[in-house]
Design a protein around this nucleic acid. Structure first.
Lengths: 241, 241
DNA sequence: GCAAACTGAGTGAGGATTCACTCATTCAGT
DNA sequence: ACTGAATGAGTGAATCCTCACTCAGTTTGC
């Protein structure tokens, strides 16, 4: 029922290349309506084949297109066009449209998570860490509006991604926040009477909400930074013992 | 943006109605272009069709199925089956799958909004109102997990609904919260150095985030109520001057 | 016996994916 | 150094499958 079970398995898996294509040029080739196709697209000669940047180009194009149209409304061919690549090429690098979104997300989020893992321990105490998280999340997205939109909006459009893939990441993130809060409670920096988990969810939600309206709205430069500061102020004051 | 134009278009070359219809007008059934179908139905007092509960049955089934599978993965036929109705019947009551989600949302949200409009003025001051909003939003959803999931998750899956329909409601809601905060600042109940709008977004986000994880998770009874109390405590303390 | 209400098999748009084919590049053999 | 066979990345039109929606027909209520 859930789309997961259905879409999970590639259907292409079933096809076996039965053809062992003999190294011979088939003379007739595709003599459909268009006699010959020698068209060298895009005259520019620097289009080096074998360019190792295909995957990246596709990913970059995908962020843009997904952000613009949403996951379901995005046509794979649009992404291909935006990346300057043929439809089929996308399938050389990604299993499916879903996996494309998936990779995109993973690419960036794992970067954020590892960055956090490195930076946080440098902060002296729980309040400083909490503030760092807020700054980090909003700061990261400030410069990349498309990415912000992909993460906050688009990702939720694929139930499967949401449930199977994103959930673990979210939980890891939430746990990290919760841990900081618990820590602060232990050292007496935060009040005891709030559940770290609830607080973590609320904080994440607040960040998400701010990002969302920012991404969907006019997205003024600097707005997220300002918001981060205020949010941190309110939260830290509210959490103080 | 582009999704709207795409998904709006009926698949079949629909006769008549070339709808760019604003979210307000809800043709309760597919009125096929020229008024030959004189079904006078709307509001809620009628339903003098044979089985007066069809529309309701469909809506109820839709909440369940949408919540389970997400908007896109939901097959209209699934909803029909769940409602104990033929596929076609759904189209007697709703224009399209999208309009089904739409109606669902409108049905419930307008209830919440009007409830708020009635209850809030009874509260003595800004802090009390803020707390009331928090309690209300979480309280409303506590008993209706499916609905919670539809609102927090599913709704975002239709870019068009999100942008065209939900956004105004969201904004109205956000404005209401922002107004309360501004009010509190004017009376000296809240600190001055936070933007009411940013605070409103953060609060809404926090509520949304709590609801989301609750809905996607195990959804323990009573958890939302507890969360509401704690969230309100933290926020009110954080917002105090 | 008619109209309203309902049914559900069928239609066809649409779009993801495939695969037969192209051709730049590589490299063993000369 | 040259050659041409082998390789495999890249292409994009054709395929093929999935559903939202339609409508000819049936049932129900009067």
């Amino acid at each position: 029922m859930s789309e997961s079970s259905l879409s999970l398995r590639r259907r292409r898996a079933s096809r076996g290349r039965d053809d062992a294509r003999p190294p011979q040029d088939r003379p007739a080739a595709r003599a459909k309506g268009n006699g010959e196709r020698a068209a060298t697209r895009k005259g520019d000669g620097d289009k080096r084949r074998r360019a190792g940047d295909k995957r990246d180009r596709i990913l970059r194009a995908a962020v843009k297109v997904f952000a613009q149209s949403g996951f379901h409304a995005t046509r794979v061919s649009e992404v291909a066009k935006a990346a300057g690549v043929a439809d089929g090429t996308i399938y050389l690098y990604f299993e499916s449209k879903e996996e494309l979104l998936f990779s995109l997300f993973e690419d960036r989020v794992s970067k954020l998570l590892s960055f956090m893992r490195e930076e946080l321990p440098k902060k002296p105490d729980a309040p400083a860490r909490l503030r760092a998280i807020i700054d980090m999340q909003l700061g990261l997205l400030e410069g990349e509006r498309d990415l912000a939109e992909v993460i906050t909006v688009i990702l939720r459009q694929s139930t499967r991604l949401m449930k199977e893939f994103a959930a673990p990441h979210f939980n890891a993130y939430l746990d990290a926040i919760a841990k900081i809060i618990a820590e602060g409670q232990a050292t007496g920096a935060f009040r005891q009477d709030v559940s770290p988990h609830i607080a973590a969810r609320a904080i994440f939600g607040a960040l998400d909400g701010i990002t969302l309206t920012w991404a969907l709205g006019r997205a003024e430069q600097g707005a997220l930074g300002r918001a981060a500061g205020q949010l941190a102020d309110v939260l830290l004051r509210g959490l103080a013992p």
